[in-house]
């Protein structure tokens, strides 16, 4: 009998996003959430928890990473540092 694996995401404090912190095994979502509380927030690391069944995550494949991510490489104009700002101009 193999218990499903769950990925755990914790919001460390209000105003921040949930961040992946690790994983654990649990028979169902209810227990996964509780186990996540016990395992990953023993030192007040969180104010909110998500658990997601690992098998429900669709991930990009490392084989596709060239076509996925390289095309963004030459769009330098998306970054503010691309633009020249005349000296003395503020709040821009």
């Amino acid at each position: 009998m193999i218990e499903p694996l769950w990925e755990v995401f914790v919001r460390s404090r209000r105003g921040l996003s949930h961040t992946h912190v690790g994983s654990l095994h649990a028979p169902d979502a209810t227990m996964a959430l509780r186990n996540a509380r016990d395992v990953y927030t023993r030192r007040q690391e969180g104010v909110s928890i998500w658990v997601v069944r690992a098998s429900d995550i669709t991930a990009s494949s490392p084989d596709e990473k060239d076509e996925f991510f390289d095309p963004a490489g030459d769009k330098v104009y998306r970054h503010p540092t691309f633009y020249e700002v005349p000296e003395g101009v503020e709040h821009l």
């Binding site: 218990e3 095994h25 227990m31 509780r34 186990n35 016990d38 395992v39 023993r42």
Partner: peptide, 11 residues
Amino acid sequence: PQLEEDVALGN
């Protein structure tokens, strides 16, 4: 019975 429960009962 499982590691997660060691931690839970520890709490």
